[in-house]
């Protein structure tokens, strides 16, 4: 449930109504930033990545946490690449199969 998309806040459009413009892949849309203002001034939100849902910036994306998760995922990727490489070299070593001999 609940489609949410990462977007970058690029501009404050109406500080009184807590409205800012986010950019999602080159598409821009005005969103309400009330959920993520915290103690900041509106203008400090420019450059913040946020999770956008139905026109509201619902959460700040935590770059550090994103990096941590990616690091774990990267390890799975690297481990898999090693396995792939091992299997490729095994296949090469097994080059004297009947198929290859033909």
């Amino acid at each position: 449930m609940c489609l949410g998309i990462p977007g970058l806040i690029v501009e404050i459009s109406d500080a009184d109504r807590k409205l800012a413009v986010v950019d999602v892949s080159g598409v821009r849309r005005e969103v309400n930033v009330a959920p993520i203002i915290e103690d900041d001034a509106m203008e400090d939100l420019v450059g913040v990545w946020t999770l956008v849902h139905v026109g509201f910036a619902m959460s700040r994306i935590d770059e550090e946490e994103a990096a941590k998760t990616l690091e774990v995922l990267r390890m799975f990727g690297e481990a898999q690449e090693e396995i792939d490489a091992m299997m490729a070299s095994e296949a090469m070593l097994a080059g004297d199969t009947p198929e290859a001999a033909e």
């Binding site: 998309i5 990462p6 970058l8 999602v24 892949s25 990545w49 994306i61 994103a66 998760t69 990616l70 995922l73 990267r74 390890m75 799975f76 990727g77 690297e78 481990a79 898999q80 690449e81 396995i83 792939d84």
Partner: peptide, 20 residues
Amino acid sequence: MKYADEFRDPVAARGLLAKI
């Protein structure tokens, strides 16, 4: 798309699937 594409890497997916 930042924070989306990085989480769609097929190689890492195979690694995760092997562990699963």
